[in-house]
Computed example of a mutant assay.
Amino acid sequence: MLIGKRRLSDIDVALSGATLSDLFALMKPRVMALAVFTAFVGMVSAPGVLNPAVAMVAIAAIALGAGAAGALNMWYDMDIDAMMSRTSQRPLPSGRVTSEEALNFGLLTATVSVMLLEMLAGWLAASLLAFTIFFYVVVYTMWLKRSTPQNIVIGGAAGALPPVVGWAAAANGVGIESLVLFLIVFLWTPPHFWALALFKVGDYARAGIPMMPNVAGEASTRRQIFAYSLLLAPVGVLPWVLGFASAFYGFASAGLGAGFIWRAWRVLIASGVDKRGAKALFAYSILYLFAIFAALLIDTIATRALTS
């Protein structure tokens, strides 16, 4: 298999200076955890049924793919990661992993993840995983991130695809339900990352990354965070409205969405020097995504148990 101008068999995978802990950190484990969890919920929610052992290995393949995307992102962004306080201690800028090691590791894990998922779940799920990795690494990391303040908006499609990948792995298709899950994560991404950018605006300025607060100003960013939150909250309830989740999920998602809007409102009305609201929204946004997908997971399992 050719990768650029080199064959996979020719890649030197020696990682003499890197520990397993370093390689794990290279995979962005916190980001990977979110991607894997949403993919798992997509898989469980799908109408098809995978053998439990196959499902576990398929989730592992998706985790490898998410980790590969993180490793390749760190490889390409080593220069700007070194300039930012929250990323300066990552494996590459701190010198624990070399650029070549990160590239080799990312390429190999990406290849293995796609091949493994294709063997277990078919070409559709594998193709979606490959596209997710490509979109995150090439479209977002190499192009959008350094060129436009809409980097997070467009690039958010990569982070929103895992539930679609999980659904396709189980159902060998893409239903409207999986697209709704995609839309939830897609609309969640801008307020999540712009809240972070509001209290890390100096980091992004030093690195030359055109995040929204650095380009459009903090007041505009606060308004856009609130606007996206107003869109996200009702979309989060759609699984109930469209009939593939029960009232339990509907009430849970409505409450979580109201909490998101409330915190976004606090960000909107805060003064420019007060970053507490942005920090609170950023923390809550992580809880929101885990909780809304956990509610759907519980709802799906409970509904199937009651109807079986």
Score class of each variant (00 low, 15 high):
residue 6 R to N: 13
residue 225 I to W: 02
residue 144 L to V: 09
residue 38 T to F: 02
residue 9 S to I: 10
residue 80 I to L: 12
residue 307 T to L: 14
residue 292 I to V: 15
residue 260 F to S: 01
residue 156 G to Y: 03
residue 257 G to H: 01
residue 246 S to N: 09
residue 187 L to S: 04
residue 140 Y to A: 09
residue 99 S to R: 15
residue 165 V to M: 08
residue 19 T to N: 04
residue 151 N to S: 12
residue 87 T to E: 04
residue 215 V to N: 05
residue 30 R to A: 08
residue 129 L to R: 08
residue 37 F to Y: 08
residue 112 V to Q: 04
residue 160 A to E: 04
residue 60 A to K: 09
residue 260 F to E: 00
residue 228 Y to T: 00
residue 129 L to Y: 11
residue 53 A to I: 11
residue 80 I to F: 01
residue 202 G to E: 15
residue 264 A to R: 00
residue 139 V to S: 02
residue 283 A to H: 14
residue 236 G to P: 03
residue 1 M to D: 13
residue 208 G to H: 08
residue 234 P to Y: 10
residue 216 A to R: 15
residue 138 V to L: 02
residue 291 A to Q: 00
residue 284 Y to N: 06
residue 60 A to C: 14
residue 182 F to S: 00
residue 255 G to S: 04
residue 239 P to G: 09
residue 203 D to E: 14
residue 160 A to W: 06
residue 230 L to V: 13
residue 116 L to S: 14
residue 21 S to G: 14
residue 301 I to K: 08
residue 81 D to G: 10
residue 275 K to M: 14
residue 234 P to I: 01
residue 166 G to Y: 06
residue 287 L to A: 14
residue 29 P to F: 11
residue 195 A to G: 02
residue 17 G to K: 14
residue 96 R to G: 03
residue 90 R to Q: 10
residue 102 A to D: 04
residue 113 S to L: 07
residue 101 E to M: 10
residue 285 S to H: 00
residue 130 A to G: 11
residue 117 L to D: 01
residue 95 G to H: 06
residue 69 A to M: 07
residue 281 L to W: 03
residue 51 N to C: 09
residue 158 A to R: 01
residue 280 A to D: 15
residue 87 T to A: 11
residue 241 V to D: 10
residue 187 L to A: 05
residue 273 V to P: 06
residue 160 A to I: 08
residue 285 S to G: 07
residue 21 S to K: 15
residue 268 L to D: 01
residue 168 A to H: 07
residue 298 I to F: 12
residue 105 F to C: 04
residue 33 A to M: 13
residue 297 L to F: 13
residue 65 G to N: 03
residue 25 A to W: 08
residue 151 N to T: 12
residue 36 V to T: 13
residue 38 T to R: 00
residue 174 V to T: 10
residue 169 A to N: 07
residue 296 L to K: 01
residue 224 Q to H: 13
residue 241 V to C: 11
residue 293 F to E: 02
residue 249 Y to M: 01
residue 274 D to W: 01
residue 272 G to V: 12
residue 117 L to W: 05
residue 103 L to E: 09
residue 163 P to D: 13
residue 150 Q to M: 14
residue 20 L to P: 02
residue 250 G to R: 05
residue 177 E to Q: 15
residue 59 I to N: 07
residue 245 A to D: 04
residue 293 F to D: 00
residue 20 L to H: 13
residue 184 I to M: 03
residue 126 A to K: 07
residue 195 A to W: 01
residue 165 V to W: 05
residue 173 G to V: 03
residue 220 S to F: 14
residue 261 I to G: 00
residue 157 A to I: 13
residue 10 D to L: 05
residue 192 H to M: 06
residue 217 G to C: 12
residue 135 F to G: 04
residue 91 P to R: 09
residue 145 K to A: 09
residue 41 V to N: 05
residue 289 L to C: 00
residue 33 A to S: 14
residue 225 I to E: 02
residue 226 F to M: 12
residue 25 A to V: 06
residue 46 A to P: 05
residue 23 L to D: 05
residue 286 I to C: 03
residue 142 M to V: 10
residue 42 G to K: 04
residue 191 P to V: 04
residue 38 T to Q: 01
residue 208 G to L: 02
residue 158 A to T: 09
residue 243 G to L: 08
residue 57 V to N: 06
residue 12 D to Q: 09
residue 104 N to S: 15
residue 276 R to P: 07
residue 122 G to M: 08
residue 212 M to W: 14
residue 79 D to G: 04
residue 52 P to V: 12
residue 185 V to F: 04
residue 139 V to C: 06
residue 45 S to E: 08
residue 95 G to E: 07
residue 139 V to G: 01
residue 162 P to N: 07
